[in-house]
Simulated assay, not measured.
Amino acid sequence: MRTVLQRVSAAAVRVDGEVVGALDLDGGAQGLVLLVGVARDDGPEQVATLVRKAAELRVLAGDRSALDAGAPVLVVSQFTLQGDVRKGRRPSWSAAAPGEVAEPLVRAVAEGLRARGLPVATGRFGADMAVEMVGDGPLTLILDT
């Protein structure tokens, strides 16, 4: 599982112009966006690792974690993170899990964060999404499980 974690001051996902997920952040508050790319061999172990890392990383103001701050998280599936561009001019998507494998794992990430008490919004799996983020810092990390 490859994930881009970004600290944000605002974030929303739109599908066909409609907001399907957004972070409820008051002035000065911070949240996290997780862009999640699932690989063919990912499973529950990778989900658990990602949930723990995302919830516990001390990347918010005051050296706090999302758990410490009760920060909201926006989880968005992004299979393109599994793209391989080492050869040629077209990405290869062969490492990306098919939708029927990836969708339940992305859902499990969101559910795992909720189970830890975090407010979680999501995109819509498989949809053509417009993801809006206002990076804070900026702070962007790549998490490979």
Rank of each mutant, 00 (worst) to 15 (best):
D26Q: 13
A61I: 08
R90L: 11
A22N: 04
G31C: 03
L35R: 02
V106T: 05
A102R: 04
V109G: 03
A22I: 10
A11Q: 07
L74F: 14
T3D: 02
V109Y: 01
D68G: 07
V76D: 00
D24T: 13
R14F: 03
L67D: 15
S92T: 14
L5I: 12
G117H: 11
A102D: 04
G62H: 09
K87L: 09
M133H: 10
R58E: 09
A55M: 03
A48L: 04
L35S: 04
T122R: 08
A61V: 12
R107Q: 13
E45H: 11
G43I: 12
G135W: 12
L74C: 12
V13R: 05
T80D: 07
T3A: 10
T3M: 05
A110L: 03
Q78V: 14
E103C: 05
Q6S: 11
E18P: 02
A121Q: 04
R64D: 07
A95R: 15
D84M: 11
F79Q: 04
L25H: 11
V36Y: 01
L74Q: 06
G123D: 03
A115K: 14
W93P: 01
S77W: 01
A39T: 06
V134I: 14
G70Y: 12
L34T: 02
Q30H: 10
V20W: 06
L34Y: 01
S77D: 01
G43Q: 04
S92H: 12
R64L: 13
D144Q: 08
R116I: 13
L139Q: 15
T80R: 09
A54Y: 02
S9Q: 10
P104S: 06
A69N: 06
V106C: 03
E111V: 03
Q6T: 11
P119N: 10
A130L: 15
A108Y: 05
L25F: 11
L23I: 09
A12Q: 14
R64Y: 08
A10K: 15
L139H: 11
A71N: 10
V109C: 03
A127M: 02
D63G: 13
G83F: 08
E100Q: 11
T122V: 10
G17C: 08
V75R: 01
F79R: 04
V51G: 00
V38A: 00
I142Q: 15
A12G: 07
S65F: 12
W93T: 14
A55S: 07
V47N: 00
V36R: 00
G27L: 14
V109I: 08
G135M: 13
V134A: 12
A11G: 05
R7I: 04
P91G: 03
L118Q: 03
P44V: 08
R52M: 07
L118T: 07
K53G: 00
L25D: 09
D42W: 08
L34Q: 00
D136F: 13
S94E: 10
R52T: 15
R89H: 15
A108P: 02
A102C: 05
L141E: 05
P44W: 04
L118A: 08
A66Y: 14
Q6M: 09
G37N: 01
T145N: 11
G62N: 14
A115R: 08
A22H: 10
L23D: 13
E56T: 15
D16Q: 14
L139W: 13
V106R: 01
V106M: 01
P44G: 09
R107A: 14
D24P: 08
A108D: 13
V75I: 09
A121S: 11
G43N: 03
L5D: 01
D68Q: 06
A121Y: 03
E100L: 09
S92A: 07
S77L: 01
